[in-house]
Design a protein around this nucleic acid. Structure first.
Lengths: 303, 303
DNA sequence: GCGATCCATACGCCCAGAGATATCAGACCA
DNA sequence: TGGTCTGATATCTCTGGGCGTATGGATCGC
């Protein structure tokens, strides 16, 4: 690509004159006097090396060379105007694309409100949402395949990522309706000691997994795993079949299955945090806009 | 169309930097020092209103806004470079389009050589050739639907057109082979006084028509028209059928029909001129190139 | 900790070009 | 023939920006 030879102001004058075919009118449209316009055209013709207009008195017309240059000039000007507008829209966060990873358990709680709030504020922004568990979200943030993560139990050793807790919720026991404990309003964790467990695999989200196992350990037993499933939806389905019980964040109450009962765990002091995560050095203004949307409309309780 | 906000040199620098993603290398490619490049980018970012690159030490990358602007900038630059090259090619006569009207009788004589010469000199030029008689050529030159005319007997009262004679040729008698006069090597015009005539209609080319009729009148008779035809080819075909005789420019000897004889007219003083015609005020360089091609390769005798 | 690398900043030079006003020249019309 | 319209020319001003050199500051690798 060579260095540009034709200044844009002259091309603009050229295009306008080509439309008006009248120096006086074109100058008026350009907001300048007529002599400067004559100069602009003259300079442009000097650079092109050929006349672009024939000036018969009372009749200005394009030469073949001018006819050849006109569409290119027009395209260049509109391209730049459009490109500039688009760049400004993206730069100011009025448009663009934001890739969001989210934990499946949030699909029914924090995610809908967040998306609605953000879309209202930034209707021009395209949102790509990808369901993924915590660990893949961290990796995806690092390799820049997502810009925002909505995840559980953020790791504490991530210096390049920012985290902000958006929700703190207790745990619930997930029981088949037929389970004896389902008759109680609340459940103490130790009562689950003998039941087989269904949980997410540790690789999906080690922190949350360790937290749940830790709770059981504190209650005096080691949970006996019979099955792993990568989505809470699946966990509930497995519980429904009577395969086992589970312990899960309260959000999953939103998953309504006939044969599954959710029971508050006593004491309810242990809580799991849902956080939004982003690259600390991300200059994309949409990231900050989304964080602002979260602050403005905090989903601070499980609904 | 608004006045352009982004200077092209800055956009050029932007595009190069977006390709190199390295200020030093980009500056070298642009042939300038590094600080000026930093300034260019800075000024461009000021005008856009947003950063276009993230400058992490050792790692320059486009922002979303920059990614949005880049294709538009690239398109604009290539469009202008291409448009400028095309305009220069057209302006210098290396490319473009030339519309030529020509009399059908020249299709076998002056036209082929002229086209060959011109195409050799200006291979990039597209030639539109249109067969038409003299009067329509004059009209087409005036309304600019052709740029060049090749016609017979140019009118003398056309101030806005330029003419140059390219060929002066005698007349021949066109006879059926069976005609008694076909036995002679030459024919005196008065010998045709009793034969019916086939000619082009006067509207096709009044000057040539009047000239032929004038020759007959000078020879002491008024030709008796039995048929008009708008092409010499047709005239010859009609003569072949024995419908009549004709008087035509010698060029039409090139039309070879078994049953038609061409005979020199004695005395051969009367000649018809073939001229090239153009708009005197036409600034199209291709017109002058074509005129130059004619001067260089004069088709000065009927072949 | 010490260069090396890389980009930003500061400052100065200089010119192309965009703008204005005043004036001229040709064509056309009354 | 003189007025009008149109575009060109002449001349001046001013500023944006393109480029240079010198220097500062941050990060990285050894």
């Amino acid at each position: 690509m060579d260095r540009p030879e034709l200044p844009l102001p002259q091309l603009h004058a050229f295009v306008v004159l080509a439309e008006e075919l009248h120096f006086g009118h074109a100058a008026t449209r350009l907001g300048i006097a007529q002599p400067p316009l004559s100069q602009q055209i003259r300079r442009l013709e000097d650079k092109v090396g050929h006349e672009l207009f024939t000036r018969a008195p009372g009749h200005v017309a394009l030469t073949p060379a001018g006819r050849e240059l006109l569409p290119a000039a027009r395209r260049a000007l509109t391209d730049l105007a459009d490109g500039l507008a688009a760049a400004r829209a993206v730069g100011s966060g009025r448009a663009g694309r934001l890739r969001i990873g989210f934990a499946a358990s949030l699909a029914l709680t924090v995610l809908p409100g967040l998306l609605r709030t953000f879309r209202d504020q930034s209707p021009g922004v395209h949102l790509d949402i990808h369901e993924m568990t915590t660990a893949p979200q961290i990796a995806a943030l690092h390799d820049k395949s997502i810009d925002i993560g909505l995840l559980r139990e953020p790791p504490t050793d991530e210096t390049e990522l920012g985290f902000r807790t958006v929700l703190s919720e207790p745990f619930v026991a997930v029981l088949p309706s037929a389970h004896p404990l389902a008759a109680q309003r609340t459940v103490r964790l130790a009562q689950l000691a003998d039941s087989p467990f269904v949980l997410l695999p540790r690789t999906a989200g080690p922190t949350l997994h360790d937290q749940i196992v830790g709770l059981c350990t504190a209650a005096g037993f080691t949970p006996r795993m019979v099955q792993h499933a990568v989505e809470w939806q699946t966990v509930c389905a497995l519980v429904e079949t009577g395969l086992g019980v589970s312990v899960a964040p309260a959000s999953i109450r939103r998953i309504r299955l006939k044969g599954v009962a959710f029971r508050r765990i006593e004491p309810g002091t242990a809580r799991t945090r849902v956080a939004v995560a982003w690259r600390a050095n991300d200059s994309n203004p949409l990231v900050n806009r989304l964080l602002a949307a979260i602050s403005q409309d905090p989903p601070n309780r499980p609904r």
